[in-house]
């Protein structure tokens, strides 16, 4: 394809499968997920609630609670090594040092009884062999870097003494403290107000591009990813349904689900409409998915084949893949939508 291929991607995820077991059902939360993440790149992972975004991230970090969950197959090749084959102690070194993660809930991922300073220095002492003194100095620098005023005095504060936006900044500081090659941000700004959200996103973008860190942004907000991601993966019911550059995903989507998502949001950059075009039906029950394409019941393009065979990702353009039997016919134009069913 391109000269890019000669460079090994930082992260190669291959046919990843993570299931949750209960006496009555199996939830195939992640069911055959494959993607690459290049050095320094920003990749978006979008999709609605319950489609498997967080489980994908937790699987990469090997943080799936077992039971009920189990990583049942696949490979996670990071810098040439399969993380799924590492011993627990080797994996602990990867976490925090090579891969930083910001979780969905900032309050639950900071320890309420430890000072901010202590939580920052912990990783520095453990992974970077710093003395207490050095670590505390560095912690002050890090808080300053994420834009917390009076950084050095705030090191003595506890999480509850900070606002939601400040806690999220602390999380970013912790995640970046050991200069990881990859930062995973799972809905890192979803709980925040728009103006604070903008501050945090600009900060993450600025820091990762300056430090050369690759960034995996997980979100259900299509707008968030459009501004920051180089490429986007669209997930639905445990699988990636479309994959491509942001320009292609937003400009010429090739999967009916992506089209549906884009059409269902009102937009400030378009003239006000009188009516929205929602995706019909409900989000499917992950424990009881239909045969064939999981999107079939909500899809305007569905044909008979969709009920029998589940399409896999196939090339729909240059570096653009879609898992849909009808992807050649799919476009954002409403006329095309009405053509079927």
């Amino acid at each position: 394809m391109t000269e890019r291929q000669t460079v090994e991607p930082l992260l190669q995820v291959r046919d990843l499968k993570t299931y949750f077991y209960s006496p009555s059902s199996v939830v195939r939360a992640v069911d055959g997920v494959t993607f690459d993440l290049r050095e320094g790149e920003t990749l978006g992972l979008v999709g609605e609630s319950g489609c498997g975004k967080s489980v994908t991230a937790l699987t990469l970090m090997r943080l799936i609670p077992n039971p009920p969950g189990r990583i049942v197959g696949g490979e996670v090749i990071f810098k040439g090594r399969d993380l799924l084959k590492l011993s627990d102690s080797e994996m602990r070194k990867v976490r925090g040092r090579d891969i930083g993660m910001i979780f969905q809930e900032p309050m639950s991922s900071l320890n309420p009884v430890l000072t901010i300073g202590r939580q920052l220095t912990e990783a520095l002492e453990l992974h970077m062999n710093m003395s207490k003194r050095q670590a505390m100095d560095r912690a002050g620098e890090l808080l300053d870097m994420v834009g917390i005023p009076d950084a050095r005095t705030r090191l003595k504060d506890y999480p509850h003494q900070m606002s939601g936006g400040q806690r999220q900044r602390v999380m970013i500081a912790i995640a970046l403290s050991c200069n990881p090659k990859l930062l995973i941000a799972d809905e890192a700004t979803t709980a925040l107000d728009v103006t604070i959200q903008a501050q945090i996103l600009e900060l993450m973008q600025d820091l990762t591009s300056r430090l050369g860190t690759a960034l995996l942004i997980i979100t259900h907000n299509l707008g968030v990813v459009a501004r920051y991601a180089d490429r986007v993966n669209v997930m639905y019911a445990g699988k990636i349904r479309e994959m491509g550059s942001s320009d292609d995903i937003y400009g010429s989507p090739k999967h009916p689900y992506t089209v549906g998502l884009l059409n269902s949001v009102p937009r400030l950059d378009e003239p006000a409409k009188t009516r929205l075009a929602p995706i019909r039906g409900e989000i499917p029950n992950m424990a009881d998915l239909p045969a064939g394409c999981a999107f079939r019941d909500r899809c305007d393009w569905a044909i008979e084949r969709c009920g029998a065979e589940d399409p896999t990702l196939t090339e729909a353009g240059r570096e653009h893949w879609s898992a849909c039997w009808e992807s050649a016919k799919v476009s954002r134009r409403p006329a095309a939508q009405k053509a079927k069913v």
């Binding site: 959200q197 600009e202 459009a226 501004r227 320009d247 937009r267 400030l268």
Partner: peptide, 19 residues
Amino acid sequence: SAVPAPDPVLERKRERIVL
């Protein structure tokens, strides 16, 4: 200006007022 638009081409051109 903090509201992100689902359009990367537009977003790249847009200046944001970050409070």
